[in-house]
Design a protein around this nucleic acid. Structure first.
Length: 505
RNA sequence: GACCCGUUAGCUCAGUCGGUAGAGCACCUGCCUUUUAAGCAGGGAGUCGUUGGUUCGAUUCCAACACGGGUCACCA
């Protein structure tokens, strides 16, 4: 045992609430009863004000968290917050009785209560439930973060998202929108005959993207597994198996840094459509996002920071090399490594000794073009070395048929005409193996089972990956990914670990 | 991983050129039967992120560490 350490001190308010809880139990009141049956949500009552004013005898039951509580001698008001919004309740001693009114006075901000009674309009015009009974549904032992300052501290807001959701109604709204966006996405894909599938998160070989994986261990099998960095290779196996349109919405894991557009686990939507090429996938992508914008927001023009983004399809399609040429005056589409490296130097980039043609083009594009791609657009045709799972471009074999979609300088989608030649795929894996041997930790390992699948024959197909979190950011005008993730990645909280240790002693 | 900035009451923030701290809201007590940032009167509340150093004395200066934010790197 450690030397005695003080138990984490309770604040004054926490102490008082625990004492209050004990008193309730002594009085035979269960502070955590089992159920309540509300008849209405707050917004239903507020939305039916005329109905209730013409039916003063009709009674409602509402339940929620107390977010304001004001006594006025032998009467008082409180606001309850339920999922739909807030509603005021008016509590009078002569209505509730002396004992119940005293219990009402003893309630705290944060407690859950159920209130029943008729609905009326106060002098100041607010629709209010006149309480005939007030039942404690759950006693709160911790003070609410804020009454009207809100909760601002970013760390507390993300670490204690529950408190953030209570204190900041607009945060709830972002996550409702997120859900609606994903629902609209599913509806769009289902409507086009795509089959939603689920593929392994724990994979013996990872692939489909350039990224370092999280490694884990399967005890019973005594073997290493990788958390997936992409769904790609499994979804393509399903094309081999005869499904023609498949998609998956789920979590990818990449063992990388955290910043305003990256979280180690993030949500991706990938789809694959047999007999389609990347032109068809561009059509689908813009139609899908257009439809999401209309169904969730009722508009295709949406504000994002200082920009008004126009999501209406079709989106412009630009050749990567034309965009580069327009910017730097040099055409780099010929595959000349030295020329590309020199162009990077001219642009002020520090060129790594290992930068090949593809890497140089990509770095240059990221530096000089990407930040200026504000309105939704497609950038098409990429160097082959960057895209080992894509098919070479018709008429330009050092390029591949690939596009990325950009909005507000952010990449939100990536797509290929998928490589379905087993021999070309094997060759591409071989080139990756060379890079890997040279120390590139993101180079993709060869997946022999995937090659075996391709040998059975995969139909020509187009594939798409969409960064769902980024799409949500753009559509909801949020500028960091943590604002669209309920529980973004944070380091463990040491103070809480110490409490756990003390409790274990 | 590097650099810069931050961490003070439940929340939002002041402040201490080194002498252990304040405000508003929240909280407690009293008054008040239509208030809504209710009002009036009174009151309590803080290991000033953690550990160490300098000092008679550290919340303040210094260092390390923890956590967060920003920039960069990584993320082609």
């Amino acid at each position: 045992m450690h030397p005695r350490r003080p138990v984490i001190a309770l604040s004054e308010v926490q102490r008082l609430r625990r004492e209050k809880l004990a008193r309730l139990k002594e009085q035979g009141i269960n502070p955590y009863p089992y159920k309540y049956e509300p008849t209405h949500h707050a917004d239903q009552i507020l939305g039916s004000a005329e109905h209730f004013e013409s039916h003063p005898e009709e009674k409602v039951r509402v339940a929620g968290r107390i977010i304001s509580h004001r006594g006025h001698g032998k009467a008082g008001f409180m606001h309850l917050l339920d999922e739909s919004g807030k509603i005021q309740a008016y509590c009078r001693q002569d209505e509730l009785g002396e004992e119940a009114f005293e219990r009402w006075r003893d309630l705290d901000l944060g407690d859950f209560v159920g209130v029943s009674g008729p609905v009326f309009r106060t002098k100041t015009g607010e629709i209010t439930v006149k309480a005939e009974s007030v039942e404690l549904l759950s006693k709160s032992l911790r003070p609410m973060p804020a009454k009207f300052h809100g909760l601002k501290d970013v760390e507390t807001r993300t670490r204690q998202r529950y408190a953030d959701l209570i204190a900041n109604p607009e945060v709830r709204d972002v996550f409702r929108k997120r859900s609606a966006i994903i629902t609209a996405m599913r509806r769009f894909l289902d409507g086009r005959g795509f089959l939603e599938v689920e593929t392994p998160i724990l994979q013996p070989i990872y692939g489909g993207a350039f990224a370092r994986p999280f490694v884990t261990h399967h005890n019973a099998l005594d073997s290493e597994f990788f958390m997936r960095v992409s769904f790609e290779l499994y979804l393509k196996r399903l094309l081999v198996g005869g499904f023609e349109r498949v998609y998956e919405i789920g979590r990818d894991f990449r063992n990388e840094g955290v910043d305003r557009t990256h979280n180690p686990e993030f949500t991706q939507m990938e789809l694959y459509q047999a007999y389609a090429d990347y032109h068809d996938i561009m059509d689908i992508t813009e139609a899908m996002v257009n439809e999401i914008a209309v169904s969730v927001f009722g508009a295709t023009q949406l504000q994002f920071g200082e920009h008004t983004l126009d999501w209406k399809a079709p989106w412009p399609r630009h050749s990567l090399f034309e965009l580069l040429k327009a910017k730097i005056g040099v055409d780099l589409s010929d595959g000349d490594r030295e020329k590309a490296r020199e162009a990077c130097r001219q642009a002020g980039l520090t060129v790594g000794h290992d930068w090949d043609y593809g890497k140089s083009v990509d770095e240059l594009f990221s530096a000089v073009v990407q930040p200026q791609l504000i309105q939704p657009c497609f950038v098409i045709d990429y160097p082959r070395d960057l895209s080992p799972l894509a098919k070479e471009k018709r008429g330009a074999p050092h390029l591949v048929e690939r596009f990325e979609a950009f909005v507000a300088g952010m990449e939100i989608a990536n797509s290929f005409s998928e490589q379905n030649s087993p021999l070309a795929q094997e060759e591409a894996f071989r080139r990756q193996a060379v890079l890997r041997a040279e120390g590139n930790q993101e180079a993709q390992p060869e997946d022999r089972d995937f090659l075996r699948a391709l040998e059975y024959g995969m139909p020509p197909a187009g594939g798409l990956g969409v960064g769902v979190d980024r799409l949500v950011m753009l559509l909801t005008n949020q500028h960091t990914i943590r604002e669209v993730l309920l529980f973004p990645h944070l380091r463990p909280e040491t103070a809480l670990e110490e409490i756990a240790e003390e409790e274990a002693e």
